[in-house]
C-alpha cells in the first residue's frame, strides 16, 4: 500500500484517476478546489500547490509517488498567473519530491507543446522540439512546465520521472477539444482539413496507472486510436462545419478574444490548419500502452457527455 499524492484531484481526470487508484493505494488529493463527493479513504487537502504548507504534507506522510495533474489550461487568465501557477507550482512539487525521497513523479503534459506547424513531420517523436510557444505566448507556461520536468528527469535519477504528452483528450472533461467538437456548428479553416488525434480520458487514466509501475521512466507521447481529418470527426458526430477563410476566422477570433467572449486565443487556430500528430510507439513498447477504444467508440463516448448533449438540445 503505497502513498500517492495526486494534485488536481478535483478535475475530471483527477477524479477518474483517484477512483481507480484508491483501492490499491493510499491517495492524498491536493487541489485548490474542493472535492465534495469523494470515497471515504481519500484525504483531500484544499491547498494551492505553491503554498509552504504543502511541504508539511510530504513531511507528515511517507509519500511514494506524485501524480501532477494540476496544470491550468485556461488561457483567459493573465500570463503572469499562468506562469506562476504552472511553472512555479511544478517547480515546488519537484523540490518536495527530491527532498522527501519520493520514488516516482508522473507529469501530465500535452502533445500541443510541439505546436501545430506546416513543416511538422506527420508524426512527432518525443525528440521533437517544443515549439508551441513560438507565436503563441499563452502556451509558454505549458511548454516551460514540460521542460522543467524533463530536465528534472535528467538531473535527478533517483526519482523515476514520467512525462506524458497525450493528444487531444475527449470525454466528460470540460477541456478545449471536447468543447470545440460540442459546438452546434464547428468553425473550420477553409481549404484546410488537418488530421487530428483524439483519445478518451479513460485511456489517459490507464496510461498514468501504467506509468506508476516501478521501473518506468521517460517521456512518452500518447496518441489513442488512428488519426482522422477534422471534417470526418465532425461528420461522424453529426455536426455541421462552417469553413471560413483563415483571414476572416482570425479577425473574428481576435475580436472575440479581445471582447472576452472566446476561450481560445487566435494563435490556437493553427491547430485547425496544420498537423500536430504524435508517434506513440515508445509508450506502446515500454509502458504497454494500448488504446482499448476505437475512434468511433471514442466519439460515441463524447456524444454521451453532458456538454455535448446540451449543445444538441
Amino acid at each position: 500500500m503505497s502513498v500517492i499524492v495526486l494534485t488536481g484531484i478535483a478535475g475530471t481526470l483527477g477524479r477518474l484517476l483517484a477512483r481507480q487508484l484508491h483501492l490499491d493505494h493510499e491517495v492524498i488529493g491536493l487541489d485548490r478546489r474542493d472535492l465534495p463527493d469523494r470515497p471515504k479513504d481519500i484525504r483531500v487537502y484544499t491547498l494551492d500547490i505553491r503554498r509552504k504548507r504543502c511541504e508539511s504534507l510530504f513531511r507528515r506522510h511517507k509519500v511514494n509517488a506524485v501524480v501532477h495533474l494540476n496544470i491550468m489550461h485556461d488561457f483567459r487568465r493573465p500570463q503572469a498567473e499562468l506562469h506562476a501557477f504552472n511553472v512555479l507550482g511544478t517547480q515546488r512539487l519537484l523540490e518536495y519530491a527530491a527532498r522527501h525521497g519520493v520514488r516516482k513523479f508522473v507529469f501530465l503534459s500535452t502533445a500541443n507543446v510541439y505546436g501545430a506547424r506546416p513543416d511538422n513531420p506527420q508524426f512527432l517523436t518525443e525528440e521533437a522540439l517544443l515549439l508551441a510557444g513560438e507565436g503563441f505566448s499563452e502556451m509558454r507556461s505549458l511548454v516551460s512546465a514540460d521542460m522543467l520536468v524533463t530536465s528534472f528527469f535528467w538531473k535527478t535519477p533517483q526519482v523515476e520521472t514520467v512525462i506524458l504528452r497525450p493528444a487531444h483528450i475527449l470525454g466528460t472533461a470540460t477541456n478545449g477539444p471536447s468543447a470545440y467538437l460540442s459546438l452546434p456548428c464547428i468553425p473550420t479553416v477553409l481549404g484546410f482539413d488537418p488530421m487530428i488525434q483524439v483519445m478518451h480520458e479513460s485511456e489517459v487514466v490507464g496510461a498514468i496507472v501504467a506509468a506508476l509501475a516501478p521501473g518506468r521512466r521517460g517521456v512518452y507521447n500518447l496518441a489513442g486510436p488512428p488519426a482522422a481529418p477534422l471534417s470526418a470527426l465532425a461528420k461522424y458526430l453529426g455536426k455541421r462545419t462552417l469553413p471560413l477563410p483563415y483571414s476572416v476566422l482570425r479577425a473574428l477570433a481576435q475580436r472575440a478574444w479581445q471582447m472576452g467572449v472566446a476561450e481560445v486565443p487566435p494563435p490556437e487556430l493553427d491547430f485547425l490548419r496544420f498537423p500536430c500528430l504524435v508517434d506513440d510507439a515508445r509508450a506502446r513498447r515500454e509502458l504497454g500502452f494500448e488504446p482499448r477504444l476505437t475512434l468511433p467508440q471514442t466519439l460515441d463516448l463524447l456524444r454521451k457527455s453532458p456538454t455535448f448533449r446540451r449543445s444538441v438540445r
Binding site: 508524426f123 488512428p226 488519426a227 482522422a228 481529418p229 475512434l295
Partner: peptide, 8 residues
C-alpha cells in the same frame, strides 16, 4: 482507419 484514411 475506420473512416477510410491512411495515417498520412
Amino acid at each position: 482507419n475506420e473512416f477510410g484514411y491512411d495515417p498520412f
